[in-house]
């Protein structure tokens, strides 16, 4: 149970950055932390003690101690999507900096008025 709670702690750290920080890049870092924590949580759920990776190396091999391949398959695509969405958020941050010359979200609100 301890690894699960460590993952939840990491989610909460990331959420803390998203909610209370005022720098846009810091908020993006918070989102990335939440994403890593969720990916890790999936891999932890599929782990089996004394397990081996779910790859068949010879015909007729015993497959009883494979770890769960389903969470791994779900996470594999999510990691690459995470990189693309992080890049999208960074592009937005860059355009905001270009327009307002600051990453501070309260300054941006003030200048907009």
């Amino acid at each position: 149970m301890i690894p699960y709670f460590a993952c939840i702690l990491l989610v909460l750290i990331g959420l803390y950055a998203v909610v209370t920080k005022r720098n846009i890049v810091r908020i993006i870092i918070g989102f990335s932390l939440v994403e890593y924590a969720i990916n890790l949580f999936f891999a932890l759920v599929g782990f089996k003690r004394e397990g081996i990776p779910p790859i068949i190396t010879e015909l007729g091999q015993s497959r009883s101690n494979f770890v769960d391949p389903l969470p791994q398959a779900l996470v594999l695509t999510a990691i690459v999507i995470g990189l693309a969405t992080t890049a999208l958020m960074l592009a937005l941050a860059m355009r905001i900096y270009e327009k307002y010359r600051t990453f501070d979200i309260t300054e941006i609100r003030r200048l907009r008025g």
Partner: peptide
Amino acid sequence: HLTPGGGFAGGV
């Protein structure tokens, strides 16, 4: 399809 990896890892 034989070893770890695949389109996503290799593409990156």
